[in-house]
């Protein structure tokens, strides 16, 4: 991999509460290369959105980065002053959120919002900024862009609004885009259009994308690599084809097996018993051990870090050298 564009090392995020400190992210480390799409997948509360929020400096108080570092192009961007972070956001890191209606200001035309972003970050004149805004609307496939630029968000359909949001995120030509559930609010037929668009633009502009979603199907088709999160940590990370076809972590294996397949019908879906632990009740050792069919004594006592497991890396003691002779995780 070339020099990473984004590097996250040992990121820890805590929420102080009256009943003690909740650790929502605990030692999360990964990197994204320029032009690469990294999928981040996990169930609700696994910490995937929080990871994105920490990177763009939008952690909701009282959440705080309690440890680790975030590097963009080799320079640290965690703990930057709010004003410096604001300039990075939009210019160097774009963001796309789930609900296009809350991302767009309903009182301004989409043109005004695009032009303001372009002028703020690229310093273009009014006419140039407008031409560029029209260009971006054409790029994301808004028909009659020159006329539609003066329309308000409510005049667009859901899918078109999400296209506008993508234009807004990309118009300052950021090197990294954080897309948090960008297609979850959309219907399946629209979802495929938006994924194809995001993928094409990322490739054409060599923009790195951190794609956060709970939908493994979206990741499988879009991402180059995938990080599977569980209870605030990365359980497994690796090339998407390997994670999907030969998952190394028992949680990933269970997750894959529990997704109903479109190609065939099974009598019974594989299911992982129980639910992800709450932040105030994360078990000692590996957080997954109470639900893991292959847990052994070491899993209950000692917390595994990411270690090499075939083509991927998994935080699982099954892949510790002592366990080297054992079979793959999906028993």
């Amino acid at each position: 991999m070339s020099a990473p564009l984004l590097e996250v090392r040992g990121l820890t995020v805590e929420f102080p509460t009256r009943r003690g400190i909740l650790r929502a992210l605990d030692g999360v480390s990964f990197a994204i290369a320029p032009g690469e799409v990294l999928g981040v997948v996990g169930e609700s509360g696994a910490g995937k959105s929080l990871t994105g929020a920490a990177i763009i400096g939008l952690l909701a108080p009282p959440g705080r980065i309690a440890g680790g570092s975030i590097l963009l192009d080799g320079a640290r961007i965690d703990h930057l002053p709010a004003e410096a972070m604001r300039r990075i956001r939009g210019r160097r890191i774009g963001a796309i959120f789930q609900d296009p209606l809350t991302t767009l200001n309903p009182l301004y035309t989409i043109g005004r919002q695009l032009i303001e972003t372009i002028q703020t970050h690229l310093g273009l004149s009014g006419a140039d900024a407008r031409a560029r805004a029209v260009h971006w609307l054409e790029e994301v496939g808004i028909p009659a862009a020159a006329r539609r630029i003066d329309a308000y968000p409510h005049e667009f359909s859901g899918g078109q609004r999400q296209r506008v949001v993508i234009a807004l995120a990309l118009c300052a030509e950021p090197r990294l885009v954080i897309a948090d559930e960008p297609t979850t609010a959309l219907d399946v037929s629209i979802q495929a259009q938006i994924i194809a668009l995001l993928k094409r633009l990322a490739r054409e502009h060599t923009t790195a994308v951190m794609l956060i979603t709970h939908d493994m199907g979206v990741i499988a088709e879009t991402a180059d690599r995938v990080a599977v999160m569980y209870a605030g940590r990365i359980a497994e990370i690796g090339p998407v084809a390997d994670v999907v076809r030969a998952p190394a972590h028992p949680y990933t294996a269970g997750l894959m097996a529990s997704i109903p397949a479109l190609e065939h019908r099974v009598a019974r879906l594989a299911q992982i018993e129980g639910a992800m632990p709450r932040l105030d009740a994360i078990p000692p050792g590996c957080a997954f051990n109470p639900r893991c069919p292959r847990a052994h004594d070491r899993c209950r006592a000692e917390r595994p870090e990411l270690m090499g497991a075939g083509a991927t890396e998994a935080a699982c003691w099954l892949h510790a050298p002592a366990h080297a002779e054992s079979s793959p995780a999906h028993a």
Partner: peptide, 8 residues
């Protein structure tokens, strides 16, 4: 249109 695991 459905994203699918088998279509990596």
């Amino acid at each position: 249109a459905i994203p699918d695991l088998e279509r990596v």
